[in-house]
Design a binder for these strands. Structure first.
Lengths: 227, 227
DNA sequence: CGGGGGCTTGAGGCCACTCAACGATAGTGG
DNA sequence: CCACTATCGTTGAGTGGCCTCAAGCCCCCG
């Protein structure tokens, strides 16, 4: 196996304060919050991009679909993540709530005004776009060249790295979602997870002195020594 | 089959003048040109990003590799394309000349200075990063969800769209390069191309009143009515 | 408690991969 | 100028990893 955990977690630049709006001269950028129940669409691909969103509670998937329904999830957005930031006029993905989700809205024009007046905001817009690009670049390597088991293991590590909770890793999304993120079928994802359980996630333990505790859709699926 | 050509070609924003440097107050941004012979490395992954490059002649591939040598090409850069633009301190890909290639160098610090002093340059930096992101997003869909034949067809369409020459489409890169770009093996790419020839690229003709002429590594591989 | 959605597991099939042979082409040195 | 070699591309045969189809279980939720 090929797993490795990063000893130091990468800094994250995805809160609104990281956008620099807090330091902006523009006073009221936030529009309010909206709550979507499980599976509800937040915006559709090619819709005009009127808002930028931040996840307050829950989780969001953004995806593209082919004409015959094949779906590729580009990213999952967890609490504090910003999504829906477009440089063009319209959204390039569809966004849906994975579970019951609350998002904060920022009017796109407000953000643009803030960026116009504040170089820091503008700078952070570029940094966020670059961060999204970096994620996509790494994901291309995964989609194009990794095996099913490697994909699932990388997914677990990514989610672990991103989740704030130290104790257990929570996976709010379904097997189908994971599959569509990794370019697999849900059955293959299920088999890979079973395989990792069967191996008692030995590599997580062996290489990093750490076993990931997976809180899988609320169910405690695998428990081990922590950190 | 699933091919479609865009009737209107998308505008391209990848020349240095598009970066806005021409309008910059900074006078001498260009450093000079370098020529690399076929297969030579221009920069390596994780190397400090001292320069940004523009292809003057030839073609460049940028890729990541796994520990065991599996390779994923993220993009091909053709004449006039800019590559090596990083927001972090180091390159996230390795760049190599596909064929004998001349590149123009821009010192990274010069570009940053120009961006600092000129909002237009900065704006274009963001736009270019967003364009790269969009390409990566589309490529994730291809890598994760398209069949071998669809991948190769999409590749031909992309190259056709990007190549300046109206008559024939030239493919300077090897089968292995194409395979590593599409997440396939070189044999599968070869078979898919043979299959498209066998079908006389019917769908290119049928759906768009247009047949693509493929100039494959210098050899005229497929000829048909043009536009 | 019945229905439905999500997850797991098994059996079989297929698409892309692997291994291999061969031809064409370009570059190299005698 | 011509073997010689290396590289690249094509094609065939066989394999295997992931997909497809299907059954059954569990849990949630009305």
């Amino acid at each position: 196996m090929f797993l490795r955990t990063t000893s130091n977690r990468a800094p994250r630049f995805n809160s609104l304060s990281d956008l620099g709006i807090a330091s902006s001269s523009n006073p009221s950028v936030y529009l309010g919050e909206l709550t979507y129940s499980k599976g509800k669409e937040i915006y559709g691909e090619k819709e005009p991009a009127a808002y930028v969103y931040q996840v307050i509670k829950g989780a969001v998937r953004t995806y593209k679909v082919l004409a015959d329904g094949r779906r590729q999830i580009g990213a999952f957005h967890l609490v504090s993540d910003i999504f829906g930031l477009e440089n063009g006029e319209s959204h390039r993905f569809t966004a849906e709530a994975v579970v019951a989700t609350t998002v904060r809205l920022i009017r796109r024009t407000s953000l643009e005004d803030a960026a116009e007046n504040d170089a820091v905001v503008f700078h952070n817009l570029l940094r966020m776009t670059a961060k999204n690009l970096q994620h996509a670049e790494n994901h291309m390597l995964l989609l194009g060249r990794k095996t099913a088991l490697e994909k699932v293991a990388a997914f677990l590590l990514e989610m672990d790295e991103r989740s704030a909770s130290a104790g257990a890793l929570s996976l709010p999304m379904s097997r189908r979602d994971i599959a569509d993120y990794l370019g697999l079928t849900l059955e293959t994802v299920s088999r890979a997870l079973s395989e990792l359980h069967r191996q008692e996630v030995l590599d997580f333990l062996g290489k990093s002195q750490r076993k990931i505790v997976i809180r899988d859709r609320g169910q405690l699926a695998s428990v081990g020594s922590q950190r």
